[in-house]
């Protein structure tokens, strides 16, 4: 039988993970791709300006990876707190 305290800990760990991943999401989407795009455009990835690349390619790759990382980490967390199916 699961304990209330355990479930509360599980939830706290989940919220911490979400906060970390959303911080990355925010920094990539709004920071690197928009706010800092003019500065990053001074650098190049291959031959394309870096800020532009983040805005039209890199950000999407990061979004995909973030969801995968979340799903994987939650698998482990679900098992650790014995709330998996």
């Amino acid at each position: 039988m699961r304990q209330r305290a355990d479930v509360r800990q599980y939830w706290r760990a989940n919220v911490r993970l979400i906060a970390t991943l959303l911080a990355v999401w925010f920094i990539v989407a709004y920071g690197l791709s928009i706010l800092l795009a003019p500065q990053l455009n001074q650098f190049r990835l291959g031959s394309v300006p870096l800020g532009f690349w983040f805005a039209q390619q890199g950000s999407i790759y990061v979004f995909i990876i973030l969801i995968w990382v979340y799903a994987r980490r939650m698998d482990a967390l679900d098992r650790q707190y014995d709330v998996h199916e």
Partner: peptide
């Protein structure tokens, strides 16, 4: 996007970034 250049990123990020919110929240 081709008409907007860089600014076309609003659609590219706007219509993909929401899935992170959907998946996590």
């Amino acid at each position: 996007i081709s008409a907007l250049g860089y600014d076309g990123a609003i659609y590219l990020m706007g219509w993909t970034g929401g899935y992170v919110l959907l998946a996590l929240l």
